[in-house]
């Protein structure tokens, strides 16, 4: 699959990656709503999203160990920003059942690898940073249309834009992964 993607035209590749990611997210959201399927759908969906990034070199995904301390700190800062409105308002940390917490971690990592990793890289190749940022944010928002009530989509889009801008500004995916995992575990 990744070999086929690598050999296609950049525009076609970006369209294929976008379609694939969107299909996985919508399938996950639909299956997740079925009885007994929430955790399996999240884990398998997270793994499938992560698999989209297979074949893309780590540096193009924004992964690496250089400046690791800064990347980790950046992730914590992103986590703090994502949680800040809830912290000011509610004051409590919800308790995720252990199975759901594991699934939340799996899907957070998978989503970052797919959206700010593989999709961002594919769009960047076609139209540079502006297309990568706007395109990955738009598809990220569309991907959450089935799993989130409409009222939440503005916040989802804003979070996607923030994570994509981080990916561009710092050339880093470790921060978005850490920030996303922290936020998902806490809310």
């Amino acid at each position: 699959m990744s070999l086929v993607l690598r050999r296609t035209h950049p525009g076609v590749r970006a369209a294929l990656v976008g379609t694939l990611v969107l299909c996985i997210e919508w399938a996950r959201a639909s299956i997740q709503a079925q009885p007994y399927m929430a955790i399996p759908a999240l884990v398998v969906g997270g793994a499938a999203l992560g698999a989209v990034a297979l074949g893309t070199p780590a540096d193009r995904l924004g992964l690496g160990t250089s400046r690791l301390g800064l990347r980790i700190l950046g992730g914590m800062a992103l986590g703090a920003v994502l949680l800040f409105p809830a912290a000011v308002r509610s004051g409590s940390v919800p308790i995720l059942p252990a199975g759901l917490a594991f699934a939340a971690v799996a899907v957070s990592i998978g989503e970052e690898l797919a959206f700010r990793g593989a999709l961002y890289a594919a769009l960047h190749e076609v139209g540079g940073a502006p297309l990568a940022i706007i395109g990955s944010t738009a598809l990220w928002t569309a991907a959450h249309a089935l799993s989130h009530p409409p009222a939440f989509l503005g916040a989802v889009a804003a979070a996607g834009l923030l994570l994509a801008l981080w990916r561009w500004a710092c050339r880093d995916l470790v921060g978005p992964v850490i920030g996303h995992v922290i936020a998902d575990l806490a809310l």
């Binding site: 997740q32 809830a86 308002r89 509610s90 799993s147 916040a155 809310l187």
Partner: peptide
């Protein structure tokens, strides 16, 4: 982007929600 997120997240409770709770 941080400011835009704060405004957008403030308009819905709890703010960041990824569909688990």
């Amino acid at each position: 982007a941080v400011t835009a997120y704060m405004v957008a997240a403030w308009m819905v409770a709890p703010g960041f929600y990824d569909g688990f709770g």
